[in-house]
Design a protein around this nucleic acid. Structure first.
Length: 286
DNA sequence: TATGAGCGA
Protein backbone atom coordinates (compact mmCIF):
# COMPACT_ATOMS: atom_id res chain seq x y z
CA UNK A 1 0.00 0.00 0.00
CA UNK A 2 1.55 3.24 -1.04
CA UNK A 3 2.41 5.62 1.64
CA UNK A 4 2.12 9.16 0.45
CA UNK A 5 3.62 12.25 1.85
CA UNK A 6 3.51 15.76 0.64
CA UNK A 7 6.76 17.55 0.31
CA UNK A 8 7.54 21.13 -0.41
CA UNK A 9 9.31 22.08 -3.55
CA UNK A 10 12.97 22.45 -3.04
CA UNK A 11 14.24 25.55 -1.35
CA UNK A 12 16.05 26.81 -4.38
CA UNK A 13 12.96 26.48 -6.48
CA UNK A 14 10.87 28.33 -3.95
CA UNK A 15 13.25 31.22 -4.16
CA UNK A 16 13.32 31.07 -7.92
CA UNK A 17 9.58 31.01 -8.27
CA UNK A 18 8.88 33.75 -5.79
CA UNK A 19 6.27 33.81 -3.06
CA UNK A 20 3.09 33.97 -5.07
CA UNK A 21 3.60 31.06 -7.36
CA UNK A 22 0.77 28.68 -7.90
CA UNK A 23 2.54 25.53 -8.96
CA UNK A 24 1.26 22.46 -7.22
CA UNK A 25 3.57 21.18 -4.54
CA UNK A 26 5.83 18.30 -5.27
CA UNK A 27 4.81 14.96 -3.91
CA UNK A 28 6.57 11.82 -3.14
CA UNK A 29 5.06 8.35 -3.17
CA UNK A 30 6.73 5.28 -1.87
CA UNK A 31 5.66 1.78 -2.77
CA UNK A 32 6.73 -0.61 -0.06
CA UNK A 33 6.24 -3.67 -2.24
CA UNK A 34 8.29 -2.62 -5.22
CA UNK A 35 10.61 -0.48 -3.13
CA UNK A 36 9.98 2.28 -5.59
CA UNK A 37 9.76 5.92 -4.84
CA UNK A 38 7.99 8.25 -7.21
CA UNK A 39 8.67 11.94 -7.03
CA UNK A 40 6.29 14.22 -8.83
CA UNK A 41 7.22 17.84 -9.27
CA UNK A 42 5.89 20.75 -11.21
CA UNK A 43 8.15 23.25 -12.73
CA UNK A 44 8.53 25.59 -15.66
CA UNK A 45 10.37 24.61 -18.75
CA UNK A 46 12.55 26.89 -20.80
CA UNK A 47 9.45 28.34 -22.52
CA UNK A 48 7.91 29.22 -19.17
CA UNK A 49 5.31 26.46 -19.56
CA UNK A 50 4.27 24.51 -16.54
CA UNK A 51 5.46 20.94 -16.77
CA UNK A 52 5.05 17.92 -14.60
CA UNK A 53 8.18 15.98 -13.83
CA UNK A 54 7.84 12.44 -12.59
CA UNK A 55 10.86 10.58 -11.41
CA UNK A 56 10.91 7.11 -9.99
CA UNK A 57 13.66 5.70 -7.86
CA UNK A 58 14.23 2.14 -6.91
CA UNK A 59 15.24 2.06 -3.35
CA UNK A 60 17.59 -0.50 -1.89
CA UNK A 61 17.79 -2.50 -5.05
CA UNK A 62 20.94 -0.97 -6.39
CA UNK A 63 24.11 -2.71 -5.63
CA UNK A 64 26.21 -0.70 -3.31
CA UNK A 65 29.02 -1.44 -0.99
CA UNK A 66 27.84 -3.20 2.17
CA UNK A 67 28.87 -0.29 4.33
CA UNK A 68 26.69 2.02 2.25
CA UNK A 69 23.76 -0.38 2.25
CA UNK A 70 23.96 -0.48 6.00
CA UNK A 71 23.98 3.26 6.20
CA UNK A 72 20.89 3.46 4.01
CA UNK A 73 19.00 1.35 6.52
CA UNK A 74 19.57 3.79 9.32
CA UNK A 75 16.42 5.08 10.86
CA UNK A 76 15.77 8.72 10.10
CA UNK A 77 15.52 10.94 13.10
CA UNK A 78 14.60 14.44 14.20
CA UNK A 79 12.38 16.39 11.84
CA UNK A 80 13.09 13.80 9.16
CA UNK A 81 11.86 10.87 11.22
CA UNK A 82 8.66 10.65 9.17
CA UNK A 83 10.31 11.00 5.79
CA UNK A 84 10.15 8.20 3.29
CA UNK A 85 13.31 6.23 2.69
CA UNK A 86 15.79 7.80 0.40
CA UNK A 87 16.60 11.45 -0.03
CA UNK A 88 13.94 14.06 0.56
CA UNK A 89 13.81 16.33 -2.49
CA UNK A 90 12.86 19.35 -0.43
CA UNK A 91 16.20 19.42 1.24
CA UNK A 92 18.37 17.12 -0.81
CA UNK A 93 19.42 17.32 -4.40
CA UNK A 94 20.44 14.16 -6.12
CA UNK A 95 23.05 14.99 -8.65
CA UNK A 96 23.98 12.80 -11.51
CA UNK A 97 26.25 9.94 -10.86
CA UNK A 98 29.86 10.87 -10.89
CA UNK A 99 32.33 8.37 -12.20
CA UNK A 100 35.79 8.51 -10.91
CA UNK A 101 38.85 7.99 -12.96
CA UNK A 102 41.40 5.89 -11.20
CA UNK A 103 45.00 6.08 -12.09
CA UNK A 104 45.46 2.36 -12.45
CA UNK A 105 42.90 2.01 -15.23
CA UNK A 106 45.40 2.86 -17.87
CA UNK A 107 43.30 1.90 -20.85
CA UNK A 108 40.65 4.45 -20.08
CA UNK A 109 43.22 7.11 -19.48
CA UNK A 110 44.72 6.43 -22.83
CA UNK A 111 41.48 6.94 -24.70
CA UNK A 112 40.48 9.98 -22.71
CA UNK A 113 43.79 11.68 -23.21
CA UNK A 114 42.72 13.18 -26.49
CA UNK A 115 39.69 14.84 -25.01
CA UNK A 116 41.36 16.04 -21.87
CA UNK A 117 42.16 19.72 -22.23
CA UNK A 118 45.00 19.38 -19.79
CA UNK A 119 46.57 16.70 -21.89
CA UNK A 120 46.47 19.00 -24.88
CA UNK A 121 48.23 21.69 -22.92
CA UNK A 122 50.92 19.27 -21.96
CA UNK A 123 52.50 19.09 -25.36
CA UNK A 124 52.08 22.81 -25.89
CA UNK A 125 55.05 24.75 -24.65
CA UNK A 126 54.33 27.53 -22.22
CA UNK A 127 57.19 29.76 -23.16
CA UNK A 128 58.12 30.42 -26.71
CA UNK A 129 61.10 32.57 -27.57
CA UNK A 130 60.10 35.69 -29.46
CA UNK A 131 63.30 35.57 -31.46
CA UNK A 132 63.68 31.98 -32.52
CA UNK A 133 60.43 30.41 -31.27
CA UNK A 134 62.48 28.06 -29.16
CA UNK A 135 61.36 26.58 -25.87
CA UNK A 136 63.02 29.19 -23.68
CA UNK A 137 62.58 32.79 -22.55
CA UNK A 138 63.58 35.42 -25.06
CA UNK A 139 66.28 36.65 -22.72
CA UNK A 140 67.83 33.20 -22.68
CA UNK A 141 67.88 32.88 -26.43
CA UNK A 142 71.24 32.03 -27.95
CA UNK A 143 70.42 34.56 -30.68
CA UNK A 144 69.48 37.25 -28.20
CA UNK A 145 72.47 39.38 -29.08
CA UNK A 146 72.41 38.82 -32.79
CA UNK A 147 68.71 39.73 -32.78
CA UNK A 148 68.07 37.29 -35.57
CA UNK A 149 67.93 33.54 -35.79
CA UNK A 150 69.90 32.01 -38.63
CA UNK A 151 68.29 32.46 -42.06
CA UNK A 152 65.40 34.78 -41.29
CA UNK A 153 62.88 34.45 -44.08
CA UNK A 154 64.98 35.56 -46.98
CA UNK A 155 62.22 36.45 -49.44
CA UNK A 156 60.64 39.02 -47.19
CA UNK A 157 64.05 40.63 -46.88
CA UNK A 158 64.29 40.84 -50.63
CA UNK A 159 60.87 42.40 -50.94
CA UNK A 160 61.78 45.10 -48.48
CA UNK A 161 65.07 45.88 -50.15
CA UNK A 162 63.20 47.45 -53.06
CA UNK A 163 61.95 50.17 -50.76
CA UNK A 164 65.45 51.47 -50.32
CA UNK A 165 65.86 53.98 -47.49
CA UNK A 166 67.93 53.42 -44.38
CA UNK A 167 70.88 51.19 -45.03
CA UNK A 168 71.91 50.86 -41.41
CA UNK A 169 71.72 47.83 -39.23
CA UNK A 170 70.92 44.19 -39.49
CA UNK A 171 68.25 44.08 -42.14
CA UNK A 172 66.05 41.52 -40.51
CA UNK A 173 66.20 43.00 -37.04
CA UNK A 174 65.48 46.56 -38.07
CA UNK A 175 62.54 45.64 -40.22
CA UNK A 176 61.02 43.84 -37.32
CA UNK A 177 61.06 47.15 -35.50
CA UNK A 178 63.38 45.86 -32.83
CA UNK A 179 65.93 48.00 -31.10
CA UNK A 180 69.38 47.58 -32.53
CA UNK A 181 72.21 48.66 -30.27
CA UNK A 182 74.68 51.02 -31.93
CA UNK A 183 77.48 48.48 -31.92
CA UNK A 184 75.26 46.10 -33.85
CA UNK A 185 74.34 48.49 -36.62
CA UNK A 186 75.90 48.67 -40.07
CA UNK A 187 76.66 45.01 -40.26
CA UNK A 188 78.16 44.90 -36.81
CA UNK A 189 76.28 41.77 -35.90
CA UNK A 190 78.62 39.25 -37.37
CA UNK A 191 78.62 36.13 -35.37
CA UNK A 192 82.19 36.26 -34.16
CA UNK A 193 81.99 39.80 -32.91
CA UNK A 194 78.83 39.34 -30.95
CA UNK A 195 80.02 36.25 -29.23
CA UNK A 196 83.01 38.15 -27.93
CA UNK A 197 81.20 41.01 -26.29
CA UNK A 198 78.56 38.69 -24.93
CA UNK A 199 77.13 37.89 -21.58
CA UNK A 200 79.16 39.75 -19.02
CA UNK A 201 82.29 38.06 -20.43
CA UNK A 202 81.65 34.90 -18.53
CA UNK A 203 84.76 33.50 -20.08
CA UNK A 204 86.91 35.60 -17.75
CA UNK A 205 84.92 35.30 -14.56
CA UNK A 206 86.25 33.59 -11.49
CA UNK A 207 84.54 32.72 -8.30
CA UNK A 208 86.24 33.23 -4.98
CA UNK A 209 84.90 31.30 -2.03
CA UNK A 210 85.75 30.99 1.61
CA UNK A 211 86.12 34.70 2.00
CA UNK A 212 86.16 36.10 5.52
CA UNK A 213 82.86 37.76 6.32
CA UNK A 214 84.36 41.17 6.74
CA UNK A 215 85.87 41.24 3.26
CA UNK A 216 84.69 44.14 1.14
CA UNK A 217 84.90 44.83 -2.59
CA UNK A 218 87.92 47.05 -2.13
CA UNK A 219 89.78 44.18 -0.52
CA UNK A 220 89.06 41.98 -3.50
CA UNK A 221 90.09 44.70 -5.87
CA UNK A 222 93.38 45.02 -4.08
CA UNK A 223 93.88 41.29 -3.96
CA UNK A 224 93.23 40.63 -7.63
CA UNK A 225 94.50 43.74 -9.33
CA UNK A 226 98.04 42.42 -9.70
CA UNK A 227 96.82 39.76 -12.12
CA UNK A 228 95.27 42.08 -14.68
CA UNK A 229 92.55 44.59 -15.28
CA UNK A 230 89.27 43.82 -13.61
CA UNK A 231 85.98 44.72 -15.25
CA UNK A 232 83.68 43.94 -12.39
CA UNK A 233 83.60 42.70 -8.85
CA UNK A 234 80.53 41.21 -7.26
CA UNK A 235 80.60 40.33 -3.61
CA UNK A 236 77.61 38.21 -2.69
CA UNK A 237 75.70 39.68 0.19
CA UNK A 238 72.42 38.99 1.87
CA UNK A 239 70.00 41.41 0.34
CA UNK A 240 68.24 42.15 3.61
CA UNK A 241 71.07 42.23 6.10
CA UNK A 242 73.94 43.15 3.84
CA UNK A 243 75.87 40.32 5.44
CA UNK A 244 78.58 38.92 3.21
CA UNK A 245 77.85 35.45 2.02
CA UNK A 246 81.52 34.68 1.83
CA UNK A 247 81.96 34.37 -1.90
CA UNK A 248 82.50 36.72 -4.78
CA UNK A 249 82.81 36.93 -8.54
CA UNK A 250 85.62 38.74 -10.24
CA UNK A 251 85.51 39.56 -13.93
CA UNK A 252 88.74 40.13 -15.71
CA UNK A 253 88.98 41.64 -19.11
CA UNK A 254 91.30 38.92 -20.25
CA UNK A 255 90.83 35.29 -19.63
CA UNK A 256 94.51 34.65 -19.21
CA UNK A 257 94.60 37.13 -16.34
CA UNK A 258 91.76 35.29 -14.72
CA UNK A 259 93.65 32.04 -15.15
CA UNK A 260 96.69 33.49 -13.45
CA UNK A 261 94.52 34.81 -10.64
CA UNK A 262 93.17 31.35 -10.05
CA UNK A 263 96.65 29.92 -9.94
CA UNK A 264 97.94 32.68 -7.74
CA UNK A 265 95.18 33.14 -5.21
CA UNK A 266 93.67 29.71 -4.79
CA UNK A 267 94.85 28.30 -1.53
CA UNK A 268 96.06 31.70 -0.45
CA UNK A 269 95.68 32.39 3.22
CA UNK A 270 93.53 35.46 3.60
CA UNK A 271 92.53 36.70 6.99
CA UNK A 272 91.87 33.60 9.00
CA UNK A 273 90.72 31.55 6.02
CA UNK A 274 92.19 29.87 2.99
CA UNK A 275 90.70 31.13 -0.24
CA UNK A 276 89.37 28.94 -2.96
CA UNK A 277 89.31 30.31 -6.49
CA UNK A 278 87.91 28.66 -9.58
CA UNK A 279 86.25 29.43 -12.86
CA UNK A 280 82.74 30.68 -12.41
CA UNK A 281 79.84 28.95 -14.01
CA UNK A 282 77.02 31.05 -15.37
CA UNK A 283 74.24 31.47 -12.86
CA UNK A 284 70.67 30.39 -13.19
CA UNK A 285 69.32 27.67 -15.37
CA UNK A 286 71.38 28.14 -18.42
C1' DT B 1 76.27 27.55 3.49
C1' DA B 2 77.46 29.45 -1.11
C1' DT B 3 77.40 30.10 -8.63
C1' DG B 4 75.21 36.58 -8.69
C1' DA B 5 69.69 39.82 -9.65
C1' DG B 6 66.31 40.74 -12.57
C1' DC B 7 62.95 40.67 -16.38
C1' DG B 8 58.79 37.82 -18.22
C1' DA B 9 54.87 35.27 -22.20
Amino acid sequence: MPEDSEVKPSWAEQVEWGEDETLPPAREDYDEKTKTKTVTEYTYNSESKKVKVVRTYKIETRKVAPSIAKRKAWKKFGSASNDAPGPNPSNTIMSEETFMQFVHSKENLQTDAEEDPLAKLKGHKIVSCRICKGDHWTTKCPYKDTLAPPQENADSDKAKEGEGGASAGSPAAQRLGKYVPPNMRDGGNRRGETMMGNRRDEAATIRVTNLPEDTIEADLQELFRPFGSISRIYLAKDKATGQSKGFAFINFHRREDAARAIAGVSGFGYGHLILNVEWAKPSGTQ
